[in-house]
Amino acid sequence: MAENNANLMESTKPPLMVSVRGLVNRFGQQTVHDDLAMDVYRGEIFGLIGGSGTGKSVLLRSILGLRSPQSGSIEIEGRDITQMNRAQLLKVKRSYGVTFQHGALFSALTVSQNVQLPLAEYCDLPSQVLESLALQKIRLVGLDDSAADKFPSQLSGGMIKRASLARALILDPQLLFLDEPTSGLDPIAAAAFDDLLLYLQKSLQLTVVMITHDLDSIFRTCNRVGVIVDRRMISGTLPEVLKEEHPWIREYFHGPRAGAVRDAVLSSSVSSGV
């Protein structure tokens, strides 16, 4: 189904959601990104891949406006965030949701309070409305109602990831950034999270950019992927990227851990006539 969507998008060319051009990020002498370009189209799930230390998180932090790059432009829905003042940037920041690798839930607040927080900061609402809207999002990510009153320390790893997704969704963003959403989950929980992501993307028409190392997750959910190699990005649909000759990409997708998944997914997409 993922392939289906991708093909559909290629033909209709949906508008760009995120567009990065000529991005340069440097730490002292070390150049992390050099003239990096990245495009994410509306409605797709875009997987961001790369070895440790290739700057996936730095790229994400740049796009989120948490770090100003040395040069380059970063457009979110057509507006360049590197040229924005504080107020404009704040408005953009409210238009997307983010989850962090370890959840980053506020440990002193309950799940419900965590989820309410962005909304409560955004405008004054009666607490009953806040609680009820939070409960809506808690249910949306597949958590039980009883999780609402729990503290983050009482949650399992999978529940933390879901609660943090609920918090990212509270302002109903069109764009979602996920940093390793399935890392640290067992295969069953990770697959359930993939299902959730596909379900949300389908029912809410979300655009998702996610950093991930989880090959199953990449093959199941991503419409397109971008691989950071040699300080640049190679991106495309999975079959396109699989054809790349770059040694790291070959190693990554053709290594011992990838073989079985890749074959299974690709053969199923061939047999279904894509």
């Binding site: 249910r139 949306l140 009153d149 029912s203």
Partner: peptide
């Protein structure tokens, strides 16, 4: 429709006063 069918369980129990 989505909210009504997927995200509501029992409207009466929304919000909690059971503690």
């Amino acid at each position: 429709e989505f909210v009504q069918h997927s995200l509501e369980r029992d409207i009466g129990s929304d919000g909690n006063g059971h503690r």
